[in-house]
Design a protein around this nucleic acid. Sequence first.
DNA 1: AACCCAGTCAACCGCCTTCGC
DNA 2: CGCGAAGGCGGTTGACTGGGT
Length: 280
Amino acid sequence: MGRAPCCSKVGLHRGPWTPGEDTLLVKYIQAHGEGHWRSLPKNAGLLRCGKSCRLRWMNYLRPDIKRGNITADEDDLIIRLHSLLGNRWSLIAGRLPGRTDNEIKNYWNTHLSKRLFSQGTDPNTHKKRPDPVVAQPVRKRKKNICSTSKPKQPAEPEKPKIHLPKPIRVTASVQCTNTFSTVSSTQGGGEVVLHVPWTEYVNDDKNGTGFLSSCNNNNNDRDLINGSDFECQSHHHHHQVPCTEDDTNSLDKLYEEYLQLLKTNEDQVQLDSFAESLLI
DNA sequence: AACCCAGTCAACCGCCTTCGC
DNA sequence: CGCGAAGGCGGTTGACTGGGT
């Protein structure tokens, strides 16, 4: 058995947060900053467990959070990142400023996985399924005509749990300059956008130009080494893998290799395997 | 109008990793 | 090195909503 739940203490509030609780939490964090979640509720006068406070802050109360209105670009990015990273929602969220892992996870489960499935793509493997699904009779709804079953009753046979290598966690003092690049190329009349590690490339659709932006990473208090993110600058020597010039060079080489693949090969399988190699 | 039921999403749970001693 | 505490993550739950019957 695992550790006893942290919220097992009697007398603690559970369930939806009240505006008053939100106010208490926000004011306390504005005054004292994030962290020390275990002691925070007591100090802030909240009858909540620390985990609950952290979750509420991270997923709802943080001032930089965007809520709802996930754009088509974000859709595309989430799908592509998921194909690279799998269910590592926090990593995916880290590439979408203002989005939380919980929101992306919910959005994936309620929208994107079903959409992919209905398009004949296995949402787990991102590969075309051999047997396109025959639309099953569904109660008509005006919105979200996509799923026939609740998540609790998956239509797919349960797949074995795959334990991907965990990324190395790095602490808050990281300043990242190189993370993901979004590489655009026009192919067959449609723009193909791929997201790969390193500098972020933002394409401005309105004027057809793009610009490079360094990773602001303002939502992340950590970064990754082997999770296709690369930490490259640090101010402290604190659980971080030093980034040497060699590392940067090899990243450049990998990036060049990726660009070459983009130019010379449109085979998604090859691109996918390249991307997977970055995760190792 | 009342009920049913699928979709949504905030919150919880359990486990794992990291940290500090 | 071992242990416990704390933080963080992904999976799951369940209350709520709103369209269909």
